[in-house]
């Protein structure tokens, strides 16, 4: 984990410095030079100013990162990168977290169901359905859902779901019911997109591991023991089949992040992916880098957390 973090940090440090002639600054001045006050320009310049040897710069960079100081956003100047991230990260964690939990739950149940029915027509149909869903490009699905559920179809002249944003402008953020309902209503479509494209992968994996577990000797023994069917399902089959699924959850987090980003962009969901999209269109390089670093670190930590959970689930694995 330490190695990965170190490489991510270094990559993030080196990338802008490998570009000849500091494109970042050039683009920035071309675009916004006329809008910014001279003292601001100076400050931005000093932020990008690359004095001293690479090693010295690297030291300064590491110290800054350790203080969560990623500099200032170009576009939203004088707002700092960390404050933008702090505002948007919770939305992404909310969306991504709920999508992951729901996908895993649906995937495990769906997969167990078809795993038990392995070899039947129903299983073949449901697997094929899952394969098809898992092939849906999420950005396209997002647009389809948006087009049909938020624009085309109306019930009594009212759209089923909002087109964009995380909550309605007519509610006041806080711990009140209208706000919470509005948040959930706005979450629905982005969440649906992610769940529909993510759960089939878990379901198919779950199906395969169930089929493997059913062929294990301890299953035969469980049958011979005359255990109740629910006990065999829960403690013998699901308990063992869940192990490979939990590993794949870890591996797929990085992938779902990408999906979540595009979905955020489509639904203007104010998470970190939407900020990244904004940053890319506005050539806001400090923000791009800050977001990349935070996301990478989060994914690495999420992986680590899943490893811990795995060690808890599988007694054969011990943490070193």
């Amino acid at each position: 984990m330490v190695v990965t973090i170190f490489i991510a940090l270094t990559l993030n440090f080196l990338l802008p410095r490998l570009i000849p002639g500091n494109i970042a600054l050039t683009i920035l001045f071309d675009k916004y030079g006329s809008h910014l006050k001279p003292q601001d320009l100076k400050l931005i310049e000093s932020q990008l100013d690359l004095h001293g040897s690479l090693l010295q710069q690297y030291q300064i960079y590491l110290v800054q990162v350790a203080h969560l100081n990623f500099g200032y956003s170009f576009y939203n100047y004088p707002e700092s990168v960390s404050s933008i991230i702090a505002q948007s990260l919770p939305w992404t964690i909310f969306l991504l977290g709920s999508a992951t939990v729901i996908s895993v739950l649906i995937g495990v149940f769906y997969g167990s169901y078809i795993g038990w029915k392995s070899g039947t027509r129903q299983e073949s149909f449901l697997s094929t359905f899952a394969i098809t869903l898992s092939s849906l490009p999420y950005f396209w699905l997002a647009l389809l859902l948006q087009l049909f559920l938020a624009v085309v179809i109306t019930v009594d002249g009212v759209h089923l779901f909002p087109v964009a944003l995380a909550y309605s402008t007519s509610v006041t953020p806080g711990a009140n019911l209208p706000f919470i309902l509005s948040v959930l209503h706005h979450l629905a479509l982005p969440l649906m997109t992610l769940v529909i494209t993510t759960y089939p992968g878990y379901a198919l994996l779950m199906r395969n591991t169930i089929v493997n577990v059913l062929g294990e000797d301890y299953m035969l023994m469980a049958m011979a023991k005359g255990l109740r069917v629910e006990r065999i399902r829960k403690r013998y089959v699901t308990r063992n089949a869940i192990l490979p699924v939990s590993t794949s959850v870890a591996l797929s987090i990085g992938y779902i992040v990408g999906g979540a980003f595009i979905v955020e962009e489509i639904f203007s969901y104010p998470g970190i992916g939407y900020q990244l999209y904004q940053a890319v269109t506005n050539f806001d390089f400090p923000l791009i880098q800050g977001i990349f670093l935070i996301i990478t670190l989060s994914v690495i930590f999420a992986n680590f957390a899943v490893d811990l959970i795995y060690a808890f689930l599988d007694p054969r694995v011990t943490l070193k």
Partner: peptide, 22 residues
């Protein structure tokens, strides 16, 4: 393989975006 592991763990899409941005 150590190197490959690192590449596999770094979330692909943000890496794609940051590379493309430069």
């Amino acid at each position: 393989m150590r190197f490959v592991d690192v590449l596999l763990i770094i979330p692909g899409f943000p890496l794609l975006v940051i590379l493309s941005a430069y």
